[in-house]
Design a protein around this nucleic acid. Sequence first.
DNA 1: ATGTGATGCGTAAACGTTTGCGTTAAGAGC
DNA 2: GCTCTTAACGCAAACGTTTACGCATCACAT
Lengths: 330, 330
Amino acid sequence: MADVARRTGVSIATVSRALRGEKGVSEATRLRIQRIADELAYVVSPEASKLSGGATGRVAVVVPWIDAWFYSRILAGIEHELRAADLDVMLYCLEESSQRESFFERLPLRRKVDAVIAVAFPLTGPERARLEEMDVTVVVIGAHAGDFPSVRIDDELAARQAVGHLIRIGHTRIGMIRTVDPEGQSWEGDIARVAGFHGALADAGLDDDCTATVPWGIEGGERGMELLLSRADVPTAVFCHSDEVAVGALRTLRRAGIPVPAGMSVIGIDDHPTAELADLTTVRQPVAEQGAAAGRVVVDLLGGREPAERAVVLPTHLVVRGSTARPAEL
Amino acid sequence: MADVARRTGVSIATVSRALRGEKGVSEATRLRIQRIADELAYVVSPEASKLSGGATGRVAVVVPWIDAWFYSRILAGIEHELRAADLDVMLYCLEESSQRESFFERLPLRRKVDAVIAVAFPLTGPERARLEEMDVTVVVIGAHAGDFPSVRIDDELAARQAVGHLIRIGHTRIGMIRTVDPEGQSWEGDIARVAGFHGALADAGLDDDCTATVPWGIEGGERGMELLLSRADVPTAVFCHSDEVAVGALRTLRRAGIPVPAGMSVIGIDDHPTAELADLTTVRQPVAEQGAAAGRVVVDLLGGREPAERAVVLPTHLVVRGSTARPAEL
DNA sequence: ATGTGATGCGTAAACGTTTGCGTTAAGAGC
DNA sequence: GCTCTTAACGCAAACGTTTACGCATCACAT
């Protein structure tokens, strides 16, 4: 920076102001400085910047997993948006809740970032508190946590869209495969989807609590379907927590020799790429868009602007494919 | 830090040395300092640290895409390993080659990171040069680039394993679906796989150059299969650049009413999760392990240790499933 | 001509570390 | 008991920014 200043014939302070677009610099010199800085391929040292009261230009993204379709797409959306605003993305992957706890207790990103985007986390009260007392802006995706701005879908509505479809085409015995994480915890999204499931059934006077709870994933889906097939009152349709679970359910059905959709309708949530391959009816949620929306909120907040909305809820909609049909009895 | 020093009754310098485990501090005072620091939940400011000659504790991971199975798993492996070494991951996603160019020209991470892990990039000469003149340690995954340490699989060998299997079970007319990126560029991995394909055929005296080139992805696979089916000498088996491409090929075959494997054998590379679902024979490559290995190399290098190997090549092996069988004619 | 308020810019003091060099004290060798 | 070495520690100068403050300059109204 001193270099740029010398080259331009102004003081370091002026360069600093010019580069950050602060007022107090004439347009002429700003342009001159900008040009020289570009020539030298100069980039401000975030360290020095932060050290003297500026921003780090970094935002942390905290996810439970990265190697899962949903999270990697969210991440892609975030990255794209933040990159456009010249912010860097620091990735934190906290699989186990013990890691999460120690993370929020030690807060290793205390002075490392300007903002934190937490994806789909079941934030506990103390964790929220720690985040609040930390001096960063926080945005959550896929959950509402305290007063933090959030981006999500309406999970209950999505479930109602799925179950509503099954009811509309004539199903009366409908099961659900719900999920827990590897540690047996139910997450907010799942709870909302279960609520939507029961809500839709109750509205139609059909509620009979036909659910199976399994660990999230394809194998979970396989087992979930087995559980439902073990019941005395085997349902004619199954609403799955997500497409990957539904794919597992389909595998069990194939092995069981039960034709889909003739013998069993299956519906999921997500519109995962394999949903198209498996010809699976589902409720699509915009994933990358959620990440992008969260990114925009962060950019606004860091720029001192109030974001357009503090609680963004993106729409979901039914995608009808071949895994659902009228029940055979009708 | 000043606080800790005052509390302990030593100078700031001593605290700094003690906390970083440098010599020049007696064990007694080190322990005392450590205790006080823990009590105050003190963590060094990475900014200040870096500013005065220390390390940033950050490493950049540069990938072309994140929302793809391969890259997100690589990333997961890297993240896990670096997290264990207390290093932070900064994510850079450069989809288009124009972004890549400007990235390597402007080098926005000049003072931001200690190391760079470049994943599967076709690094051009100038880009390598820029990286070299920058003062960071570099590790590449899925390619060899200059003298940089690298982690990868032997793509040519993997191709030979796949094609060798097809030959061994009796196929003599074997096609390949190779891929290019959205901009029409062939990547190093693809070129090596093509070389392995031809090499294996040549060794068996079978080479007849039956390849189709398509953009990477499921749709590419669909089109690639269509192209091969358009030939006068339709092959009896197809080796696909990767499993996702193979899945596309399978879709086309299903639509065409050609039974797999009776009418056509299909094999891929990766052992993508959907390969199991699609019952696809494939050559498995360890993905997360490649990320982890690269992470370890970085950790070693930053720690001033020479890594165990400068060019890690991880093994691949055949996974036989139901999409391959002897050709019908035999 | 004088005062007033912006505007454009420079000066210098932070920010919280690391590190080269200097000082002190303790132990080793004679 | 004296020097010599070495270990343990303090001093102070960087590192590259941001920002409060101050000083000109200039336009404009008085």
